[in-house]
Design a protein around this nucleic acid. Structure first.
Lengths: 135, 135
DNA sequence: AAAATATTTGTAATAATTACAATTTTCTTG
DNA sequence: CAAGAAAATTGTAATTATTACAAATATTTT
């Protein structure tokens, strides 16, 4: 918590309890939770926490590049505290999201003249080992 | 239209007027239209067309691999009749989607043992030449 | 032609997200 | 330290793409 608060300060974000709590939770979890999962997980120890604050905080963190927003077309967003360049695999069966630590490819050369590249997202779709065994 | 109807038949989909119209429109357009854009474009010549039919048709075509569903996290989906392996670039500024005809990379080797890869999506984010000139 | 099946239509429901105003907390400054 | 200003949080209401569903229409089969 202390480390997370300092991290926020270093990035020019006032480390309120709510912001620190949200980011600390996200950093400590290997899944890629949804807004609601984050909210539900924190609620017991933070009964006054508002869902809107979770939304606001995640937007703020995302805008400042401290958090990655992941969209797998599920109808809701997921969040990842690991902002290093890496890819994601989502399983058709169990819907779990796995980190693939390879960096996404360099794509600058694909672009037409005059285009400027800001980000690359490589998403892999398929079935994970566990789900493959079941079938 | 005739060609599109036959194409549907060949893929085991009954070529109703609505389905043929939707796919024919999508094939003739270089943009990557949203459901609503498709619906609005077809409405004048098909006044009885229902938005639900457009949704149903696009889902059917997508499930059968005749159409690609694109999600850029805009809050709505876009569709692409070109199912060949290629990538997409979306401009931060004008929100236009550009086809990048390079094939997405082979990613099988990235996956842990036992995982099965079904699809790869490479999305590029940035600003297009026109928007860069304005700034 | 009648019955069975498939498709389309329109309305109502769903659910994630956003807008916004009021309250509370934190910071600034006299 | 106290008062005022600024920022953050909260809760409710609105928004909006999508889905569910039942009734109506069209198509195919017998």
């Amino acid at each position: 918590m202390r480390a997370t608060a300092e991290f926020l300060s270093q990035h020019g974000i006032r480390p309120s309890i709510q912001r620190t709590t949200v980011l600390h939770y996200l950093r400590g979890v290997k899944t890629h939770p949804t807004v609601d999962e984050i909210y539900q997980a924190l609620l017991p120890d933070n009964p006054s926490l508002s869902r809107t604050t979770v939304y606001n905080t995640l937007e703020l963190l995302s805008d400042n590049g401290l958090v990655m927003t992941l969209d797998f077309g599920e109808g809701f967003l997921r969040y990842d505290a690991d902002c290093s360049p890496h890819c994601h695999f989502i399983c058709d069966g169990c819907r779990k999201v796995f980190d693939i630590m390879d960096a996404p490819p360099e794509c600058g050369s694909m672009l037409p003249r005059g285009f400027k590249l800001k980000g690359v997202q490589l998403k892999l779709f398929g079935t994970c080992a566990t789900c493959n065994k079941k079938a």
